[in-house]
Amino acid sequence: MTHRTRQQTRALHAYERVMRVPPGERADYATHVHALGSAVLRNGLAAALAFLERELESEKTKRDKPVGRLLEDLSDALFPGPPRIAGAQLPDAVRRLEMSDYMLATRELLQTLVWFRRAVQATFTQEERSHVAEGGR
């Protein structure tokens, strides 16, 4: 049986999820991955996820849903076991956490986002990442 550190587990999860992002969604996905960490530090976890929740609502008419994909990926990282929390329910689940659990979830998400950023930088082409370098949308 192989034992992995938390960092190894986060890295494997991030790379696995980033590799699944379809080419048409990569630019927006990368933008959200790169912006989320600073949004959490600036506004707090609940507010940052509320922003993504609002973005998800505005995407309901779009075919590609990189925000929904990112929320799913983060939900699986923060709440890995049963019962499973769907990505769209992640912001509400975070709002309902007790203070100590909220603080832990914030730290966990920030550490997980480091690996998501690395995975995006390592696997997306420069063209797919240039959307981020130009300041987003």
Rank of each mutant, 00 (worst) to 15 (best):
L74C: 11
S75V: 07
S75F: 00
D76T: 13
L78H: 01
L78V: 05
F79R: 09
F79L: 12
G81D: 13
G81N: 05
G81Y: 09
P82Q: 14
P82D: 14
P83E: 12
P83T: 08
P83I: 01
R84W: 15
I85Q: 05
A86L: 15
A86W: 12
A86R: 15
A86D: 14
G87R: 04
A88R: 14
A88D: 10
A88V: 07
Q89S: 13
Q89E: 11
L90P: 02
L90Q: 01
L90D: 02
P91N: 08
P91R: 03
D92A: 15
D92N: 06
A93L: 06
A93D: 04
V94K: 08
R95Q: 10
R95G: 03
R96D: 11
R96M: 11
E98Y: 11
S100P: 09
S100K: 12
D101A: 14
D101M: 08
D101G: 09
D101K: 09
T106P: 00
R107S: 11
E108C: 10
L109N: 04
Q111Y: 10
Q111H: 12
T112A: 15
L113F: 01
L113T: 04
V114N: 08
W115Q: 06
R117P: 00
R118G: 03
R118K: 09
A119G: 01
V120C: 14
A122G: 07
A122K: 11
T123E: 10
T123Q: 10
F124N: 07
T125I: 04
Q126H: 14
Q126T: 07
Q126M: 11
